[in-house]
């Protein structure tokens, strides 16, 4: 009797801790500034779910769950390997588009607008809109570290406002305007306005989306 209660207690505590772990990892999946970050978090999610399955196997006594956990581990491993191939192949295509000997300047240029968004807007976009905001406004809401972004990513005030305005319309959250507006001067302060011309390619996907979003909002 006591043995059973010890097991039950530990399994309950374990389930609570593993649930918190799960939520933390999902937060990294949503926030993760780059694709590999998300892949790492997804890889770890597989491990956490295996732990979940093991705990439920102890709790219910159905040890057949172990086979499910093993096959889930197999699938997760294959998925991670496939994602690694995907990350590699995506780079190669980027190299073919530009000049093959120098893929380096292209990648930072593609990544700069990601860091341009204000960090204050991240929870807003991630919260209500969830996966949709991730997919559509993904370029905008991924401000990793403002310190890091400041020296490397020059951006004009108009760019920042465009990005945040498009995001606000997608998320349709009025609170986002309040959150985004105080941070804009900070972004403008760090940056010389003359650098606007250097960012030629990244804003293009945002511009056609803007009128589409305008049609929806009224």
């Amino acid at each position: 009797m006591t043995a059973q209660s010890i097991t039950q207690f530990s399994v309950n505590v374990g389930l609570v801790v593993v649930s918190i772990t799960f939520l933390l990892t999902v937060w990294r999946v949503i926030k993760g500034p780059t694709l590999p970050d998300r892949v790492i978090a997804l890889d770890m999610l597989v491990g956490i779910v295996m732990g979940f399955i093991a705990l439920i196997a102890i709790r219910t006594g159905f040890t057949l769950y172990i086979d499910i956990a093993i096959s889930l581990g197999l699938v997760g491993f294959l998925a991670t390997v496939a994602f690694a191939r995907f990350i590699l192949s995506r780079k190669r295509r980027g190299g073919e588009d530009g000049s093959p000997p120098e893929p380096e300047p292209k990648r930072p240029a593609a990544k700069e607008p990601r860091k341009a968004a204000t960090p204050a807007a991240v929870p807003v976009a991630a919260g209500p809109a969830g996966a949709v905001a991730l997919a559509e406004a993904g370029q905008a809401n991924l401000a990793a570290a403002p310190k890091e972004a400041a020296p490397r990513a020059p951006i004009s005030k108009s760019e920042a406002t465009k990005a945040s305005a498009a995001k606000v319309k997608i998320a349709k959250a009025k609170a986002a305007k309040k959150a985004a507006s105080p941070a804009e001067p900070a972004a403008a302060k760090q940056v010389p306005k003359t650098a606007a011309k250097t960012l030629s390619k990244p804003p293009k996907p945002m511009v056609p989306r803007k009128p589409a979003a305008k049609k929806e909002s009224p």
Partner: peptide, 10 residues
């Protein structure tokens, strides 16, 4: 594999 892929893609 992931570390190699992401370092190679810059």
């Amino acid at each position: 594999l992931l570390a190699k892929a992401s370092h190679e893609s810059g």
